[in-house]
Simulated scan of single mutants.
Amino acid sequence: MKSIRQLERSRREFVATGIAAGSAAMAGCITGDSSSSEDGDSYTVSMAPMGEVEFDAVPQDAFVTFAHYADMAVALGHGDAVNTLFAPEMSGSTMSMFYDRLEGVSFDGESLPHPLKDGVVEEDLYEYDSDVHFLDPSYVLTTEDDWSESKIDTVAEQVGPWFGNFHSGVHSEPAEAYADSYEYYTLWELFERVAEVFQERDRYEALKEVYDETRSQIESNLPPEDERPTVARVTLGPEGQDVFYSYHTNTDGFWQAETRPLGAHDALADVEWSGDWGEVDYETMLEADPDVILHLWGITSRYAIEEIRERLEDHSAGSELTAVQNDRVVASGMRYQGPIMNLFQLEMTAKQLYPDRFGEWPGHESGQSYPEIPDDARLFDRDRVAEIVTDGAGE
Rank of each mutant, 00 (worst) to 15 (best):
D281S: 12
E283S: 11
R260W: 02
E287W: 00
E272Y: 07
M285T: 10
P290N: 00
D276G: 14
P290K: 05
H248S: 12
N250P: 06
N250D: 15
V292H: 05
G263P: 11
L286M: 12
L268I: 12
E279T: 13
S246V: 10
L286E: 09
E239M: 04
W273H: 12
A257F: 00
E272N: 13
W273A: 03
Q241F: 05
P261K: 08
D281H: 02
D270T: 15
L262C: 11
D242L: 01
V243G: 06
D252N: 15
H295P: 10
V280W: 02
L286R: 07
E279F: 04
T251Y: 00
H265T: 15
D266E: 07
P290V: 09
G240F: 04
A264N: 02
E283R: 06
D291Y: 00
L262Q: 09
E283L: 04
V243Q: 09
T251N: 13
N250C: 00
T284N: 05
G278Q: 01
A267T: 10
V292F: 09
Y282D: 09
D252I: 05
D289W: 06
D291S: 06
F244P: 11
L268W: 08
V280K: 01
E279H: 10
V243D: 12
V243R: 10
L268A: 11
Y282I: 03
E272C: 01
A269V: 13
A267C: 12
Q241M: 10
D270S: 15
E258Q: 13
D281Q: 03
P261N: 07
A269Y: 07
E283D: 15
W277Q: 09
V280Y: 00
H295T: 10
